[in-house]
Every structure is written in structure tokens, then in C-alpha cells.
């Protein structure tokens, strides 16, 4: 089963990479851009009997390793379901 984990800095936590990219886009005259936030995407292929089990297991993975929940939020998606 394919699982997509998206990890973002929490709102209110300054994203210096996003800020630098926003600055670069403005230099390229993309003035319509108001804000840029950069996150990361982790794609997992896991064995699980059903989505609920997968969801529960991946949440534990995120809390223990994949995300640092002090500063990051995560979302879990199942693209093929």
C-alpha cells in the first residue's frame, strides 16, 4: 500500500527556506506570490490489511521519527484508495 506523508513546519514557526525562495520568486517578478512554505514528502510502501491499520501505524512512525512534532505538522494520504 502506497502512503504519502507530507511534513510542514507549524504555522507561526518561521520557514527560512520558504522565505529565501519567496525572495527569489519576487526577484524574478512573480509578484503575485504572497507566501512560500517548504515541506517534505515521504512516500512509503507498506504492508497493511486495511487503511485504518495503516493510518494508525504511520501516525506512530511520524510521531517517533518522521516528523519532529515540536515544530512540524504532518498529513497522511493514501493516493490509490
Amino acid at each position: 500500500m502506497k502512503v504519502i506523508v507530507n511534513i510542514q513546519l507549524k504555522d507561526g514557526v518561521l520557514d527560512p527556506q520558504g522565505k529565501a525562495v519567496h525572495h527569489a520568486l519576487t526577484s524574478l517578478k512573480f509578484n503575485e506570490v504572497n507566501n512560500v512554505r517548504i515541506g517534505k514528502q515521504i512516500i512509503l510502501d507498506i504492508d497493511a490489511p486495511d487503511i485504518n491499520t495503516a493510518q494508525a501505524r504511520v501516525e506512530i512512525m511520524c510521531d517517533e521519527l518522521l516528523a519532529n512534532t515540536v515544530i512540524e505538522n504532518y498529513t497522511i494520504e493514501f493516493p490509490s484508495c
Partner: peptide, 10 residues
């Protein structure tokens, strides 16, 4: 406590 982030100037 706390967390470490990328330097502000990247």
C-alpha cells in the same frame, strides 16, 4: 526542550 531549525539565513 525545544527543537532545532535551519539557520535563518539558510
Amino acid at each position: 526542550p525545544g527543537a532545532m531549525k535551519r539557520n535563518e539565513n539558510v
